[in-house]
Design a protein around this nucleic acid. Sequence first.
DNA 1: TTCTAATTGTGAAAAAGGTTACAAACAAGA
DNA 2: TCTTGTTTGTAACCTTTTTCACAATTAGAA
Lengths: 215, 215
Amino acid sequence: MKVEKISELTTNRLSVYLRCLNELLAEGKRTVSSDKLAERFHLNSAQIRKDLACFGEFGVRGVGYYVEDLRDHLQKILGLDKNHRVGIIGAGRLGTALADYYGFTQTNFDVVALFDNDKGKIGQRIGDVDVFAFKNFAKVAKKDKIDVAVIAVPAQFAQSVLEEVTKSGIKAVMNFAPTPLRVHDGVKLKTIDLTISLESLSYFLSHVNNINGNN
Amino acid sequence: MKVEKISELTTNRLSVYLRCLNELLAEGKRTVSSDKLAERFHLNSAQIRKDLACFGEFGVRGVGYYVEDLRDHLQKILGLDKNHRVGIIGAGRLGTALADYYGFTQTNFDVVALFDNDKGKIGQRIGDVDVFAFKNFAKVAKKDKIDVAVIAVPAQFAQSVLEEVTKSGIKAVMNFAPTPLRVHDGVKLKTIDLTISLESLSYFLSHVNNINGNN
DNA sequence: TTCTAATTGTGAAAAAGGTTACAAACAAGA
DNA sequence: TCTTGTTTGTAACCTTTTTCACAATTAGAA
């Protein structure tokens, strides 16, 4: 087992493995080999084994992995054994769509508050979630124990929102504003830039030759 | 200039460069060197030059790049000189949020139709866009010249939606369902999996030590 | 107990991606 | 025209990521 720095590519795959294991578990499978996993979900078996090896020896040679056992380990490794409390900044279409995104409600992420500057939105209730004034972020975040912030505001406000959020002690931020942001050390930022994805897709559309399938 | 296969990492960066150039253009800058570009937008100058070199020689030694000229080239390379017509499948919260996503309206992507199976939604108008029955996708896609499909349906339906969409001749698909999909050759699929991003974020939250800032 | 078949964990090779460093090219001033 | 200073385009190098290949380990059958 290596204690080195784990790359984001690896953690992304861990999430995929977890999903696969849950599926197998739902089918009542008790054990699975890295080969079977790889074949069924179109992954690479050596990579699965290597990724897992970063965190310990979970398999049994000659047998494979115990599905439930490995699932539990992965959940723990990914920090999904604890609940996370999410605050979304920006109560526009995207923000409110995210507020009841299946993935949030599905896993251990509870959206507990929306924030906005628009007086018309503050005080409203969207789904199960109240909209607060963003200027009260720190206060609400503390009271509601928010540990993940989602930025869903226009690009020009994103950096200052991030600063504010960071100041209040949040360590994990997901950014949907199509702009790169600077973060302080110790804060993890993940940006999902739809503009980049779209434009990149457009590239492949006008170069249909060089396409190699997936992703 | 190399005609090799261009990686997605490169096309993603091209989109970033384009954004930077537009910003410089708005400020009235006529030329820019790769060094200045890199410094200002926190990129790497050699990488910029290398990425551009895949498509031609756009710079002038001793001078740099002509901002407007390079912008136009990048737009062309990314296929953003033509308009794209987007159909979104799934008129739920996410689908409708995407329908008036700024990035779509902003760039050359027009959302021209939403599709759903829900009788209550079919025939409605959301923003500027009509909701059609998904079973009529091929027909509407042809009539409205849709060339990009966005999948915003629950994971269990995503694969069959993709098949249907592919059958109607669409070559570029963006998938928001948190599940990997299989595509036929010649179709470009880009999946944005929020569950993976969230769970990966969760990992870094419970391992706050190993954090190295950005992305 | 010994043998066989399966499967892990991992070092070594290969591929992909990113950075450094510099010759070649050009602009502008002497 | 020649010289100086700048900046590109790219070859060489380095790093990271992925894949290959196999010794080590285990379960179960003989």
